[in-house]
Design a binder for these strands. Sequence first.
DNA 1: CAAGATATGTCCGAACAAGGACATATTGTA
DNA 2: TACAATATGTCCTTGTTCGGACATATCTTG
Lengths: 110, 110
Amino acid sequence: MSETYEKEIVQHIIRNLLDIQLLRIIQAQPTWGYQIKKQVELDFNVKLRHGALYPALNNLAVKGFVESKRQRKDGRARKVYSITESGKIYLETYFNVLQGRLGRIKTKSE
Amino acid sequence: MSETYEKEIVQHIIRNLLDIQLLRIIQAQPTWGYQIKKQVELDFNVKLRHGALYPALNNLAVKGFVESKRQRKDGRARKVYSITESGKIYLETYFNVLQGRLGRIKTKSE
DNA sequence: CAAGATATGTCCGAACAAGGACATATTGTA
DNA sequence: TACAATATGTCCTTGTTCGGACATATCTTG
């Protein structure tokens, strides 16, 4: 039943929370753009444009939430991103705000 | 330290997840547009444009996630929204997807 | 050596959203 | 009775994002 909405919700998240999801993926382990694209498309069965992905990754780097270093592994030149301390704090705070504070909206009757 | 980001994060959520937050607020208890606006602005110290709020509420109604009835209470004519079953399921699924079901979403048949 | 996969990047027209103004009606208060 | 607050809605201009194309380079496989 809840599966009815899953595809739609994943799309909603990719569209509106791409930066947050990228942080989560990079927090799980250092990775690079192409890998993220393939992973997300396989796991969630949604298309992730590289034309949206790479600017979003660079944007996270500008904000200081991730840092990148160009690596050569398996005969491939990659730009590997890892999360920074700021990134960890931001991500943690984001989910705290999402789960806690906004979930406890008070009204007059309480 | 985490407070540094809270304002920015609340803004991010209001901008990108307004529909989801509206659902949460309405799920907590039936309420109306003006009330939501005042509440959010007071609790989170962010501006919530009514020009964005009312269309968003109507949009949720069109999707069948909330339903509204015009009421007259305290000498005021209000359009009171309450969440539907679909809305509850959608919201629950949304947070399930968001909270760590990464990699475990397969096909629609489960 | 050609084709496909890996890998990262920019660009542009169209579609969409944001911000603020315009609009209207009622109720409470000075 | 005027003004602020409550209450809900639309409109229009500007700004941002989207989707897809353009671009480039390396590596692998047939």
